[in-house]
């Protein structure tokens, strides 16, 4: 049964990918990439990768689609038709595809427990997580503690994305009070009331994902995106000017930097306390308790940084046209 479902998902992904390439309408292409991400998330879930599925659904299908739409609003809805030379490109793609297909012949069967990738470090993580870190979700233990280096790098990549967008588009300038005509969708009562009802619930769910990450799927990246989505919904409903007056983009960018600083600061503290970088065991008398404390702190830093970066990028796109 699950095989049929996987085959359906993968086939749909190929169809959607071809449709993205084929369409000239960028709005349709943005929607199709959202659908592609949702199919990918379902596929991850079939493969039992719930954490990755949650991230893909929140980032790929949710916020990334909003960013695409923001970028389309700043440019044109239709792709320029350029003169296309098929021959060489087709040859390159076809030969790469043949090489990759030949490569997959040597691959172990999907889900094979004795595959080399599952025999390298994974058994060690699975065996040592209950003893050293004592959290039920091994993914969080690997992401936040064993491979804390990599995640620190990821947070700075996210921060760099915000810096890149800001250096291209600049901080959105706020309209002064009297000519702030853009009140979003607040004249539409139904949307406004339903939004008002849902935004607190979405933020509550985001906080649940944030602080439940040790026990189930979730963590700072997913939670930050969910909370950012709720606040983007607020900005859509109440108008960008009002949202920016309440959460100024400069403050948001400062919060993003603070989030990355908290993460790096935890690393620095462990160094000062005589441990290795991001070795949380030294944070408390009990190593396991220190690990819990460290993971909670860096997940908070990740959530803060991700939510602030998403909102900064959104406001940079949405506030641009009012100049």
């Amino acid at each position: 049964m699950i095989i049929v479902f996987s085959l359906f998902l993968l086939t749909m992904m190929v169809v959607v990918a071809l449709a993205v390439v084929e369409t000239r309408n960028l709005f349709a292409a943005a929607m199709l990439t959202g659908i592609f991400s949702f199919l990918m998330a379902a596929n991850f879930f079939v493969l039992d990768a719930a954490d990755v599925a949650l991230t893909e659904a929140a980032v790929g299908a949710g916020v990334a689609t909003v960013f695409f739409l923001g970028a389309i609003a700043l440019s044109s809805e239709h792709e320029h038709s350029a003169s296309r030379k098929f021959g060489l490109a087709l040859l390159a793609v076809a030969s790469t595809a043949v090489v990759i297909l030949l490569g997959t012949m040597e691959f172990p069967i999907l889900g094979d427990g004795s595959a080399p990738v599952h025999q390298h470090v994974a058994p060690w993580y699975l065996e040592k997580t209950p003893e050293l870190i004592h959290v039920p979700n091994v993914v969080t233990a690997v992401l936040a503690s064993f491979r804390g280096y990599d995640t620190l790098g990821e947070v700075f990549v996210v921060l760099t994305a915000a810096i890149g967008v800001l250096s291209l588009l600049g901080f959105p300038r706020n309209n002064s009070e009297e000519n702030a005509v853009n009140d979003g969708l607040s004249h539409q009562k139904i949307l406004h009331i339903v939004g008002k009802l849902l935004i607190p619930l979405i933020i509550l769910f985001g906080l649940y994902v944030q602080f439940h990450g040790d026990f189930g799927p979730g963590g700072g990246f997913q939670a930050g995106t969910i909370i950012a989505a709720a606040l983007i919904l607020y900005a859509l409903l109440s108008g960008g000017d009002r949202a920016r007056r309440q959460m100024p983009p400069r403050l948001l960018f400062g919060m993003a930097c603070l989030g990355a600083f908290i993460y790096a600061g935890v690393g620095g503290t462990t160094l000062l306390l005589g441990g290795n970088l991001l070795d949380y065991s030294v944070l408390s008398h009990d190593p396991v308790h220190g690990q819990h404390l460290g993971i909670m702190l860096i997940e908070f830093g990740v959530g803060l940084a991700v939510a602030s970066v998403m909102l900064t990028i959104y406001h940079a796109f949405a506030g641009h046209e009012h100049r």
Binding site: Q188, I190, L191, V194, L197, L198, L201
Partner: peptide, 16 residues
């Protein structure tokens, strides 16, 4: 419960 709020609202927003 979430769907009962969101999907009619989405339909309304699209039509409106």
């Amino acid at each position: 419960l979430f769907l009962l709020f969101t999907s009619p609202t989405a339909g309304y927003a699209l039509a409106h």
